[in-house]
């Protein structure tokens, strides 16, 4: 049963990551700096909402099959049964969310937004590549579909890191400032959550590949990695920044204000 609980928690971690970064990117819709890029980032948000749905649906399936294994959540409330993609997204509170902190910090400017996406999606691309070997065929299938999307997210965001890093004096400063601000949230990417117990996972290998890629792109763009590298962590275990509460308040408002309604 322990392994089932671990798998469910890990699925929720992946789903929460996708939902929260999708939410952040969707905040740009209608407000982007270039119409084509407005479309691109909305498309990326849409990809992430799709990934979140796939992971939540699978988590819900497992929860409903093994309700006994799913005990009390962090805040002391039971998970609402039967679980659905929407009950998992809309009826859990901050301490139940397992997303990485890097997904929830505010968008900032275009440099912050594209850099965050680059750092995150490159990590996810490596992680999901390992998930292709997952013993649960459903997880492997979701990973396979997601990898197609993530490869585009990496390509798109990497292009922006290069363009802004090697564009004008102002854009270089802004991209470097984004690196200084976001870097503290990258360490958490490589801390393997306790529930990430699937045999296919190797976080050290992810970190090596990620470092190589990020270093190469920064070098080409003339950007540098900050020397002080304090790690902000805890998101995967439900310890969040203050920002997540506001995201959830906004996102969950209708489900909370009009309980038990069909939409």
């Amino acid at each position: 049963m322990a392994t089932m609980k671990n798998e469910i928690d890990f699925l929720l971690h992946l789903a929460d990551n996708a939902l929260i970064i999708g939410h952040r990117n969707s905040e740009w819709c209608g407000h982007g700096p270039i119409l084509e890029q407005d479309i691109a980032i909305t498309n990326i948000a849409l990809d992430y909402i799709g990934q979140a749905r796939n992971f939540y649906q699978h988590a819900a399936e497992l929860i409903n099959q093994h309700p006994i294994g799913i005990d009390i959540t962090q805040s002391g409330k039971d998970i609402v049964l039967p679980a659905t993609e929407d009950s998992l997204a809309y009826l859990r509170d901050v301490r139940e969310f397992k997303n990485l902190l890097i997904t929830e910090i505010p968008n900032g400017d275009w440099a912050h937004t594209t850099l965050r996406l680059f750092l995150l999606s490159e990590f996810e691309l490596q992680l999901f590549t390992q998930l292709l070997q997952h013993t649960d065929a459903q997880v492997a299938a979701i990973a396979e579909k997601s990898i197609k999307e993530l490869s585009y997210h990496v390509k798109w965001s990497q292009d922006w890191v290069l363009r802004l890093g090697d564009g004008t004096e102002e854009s270089k400063q802004r991209m470097q400032a984004a690196i200084e601000a976001i870097w503290a949230y990258t360490g958490e990417l490589f801390i393997q959550p306790e529930y990430a117990t699937a045999a296919c996972l190797n976080y050290a290998a992810i970190q090596t590949a990620w470092n190589k890629k990020v270093t190469a792109v920064f070098e080409e763009a003339g950007l540098h990695i900050p020397s002080k590298t304090f790690v902000q962590k805890g998101g995967a275990d439900g310890m969040h920044t203050e920002h997540l509460g506001y995201i959830l308040a906004e996102m969950q408002y209708l489900q909370r204000a009009y309980p038990n309604s069909e939409w």
Partner: peptide, 19 residues
């Protein structure tokens, strides 16, 4: 209403529409 859509399905449909 994108960030406040009441279900994930509605959120995806609305995002696609605005796009």
């Amino acid at each position: 209403w994108i960030t406040r859509a009441p279900s994930l399905r509605r959120k995806a449909i609305l995002l696609a529409k605005v796009q």
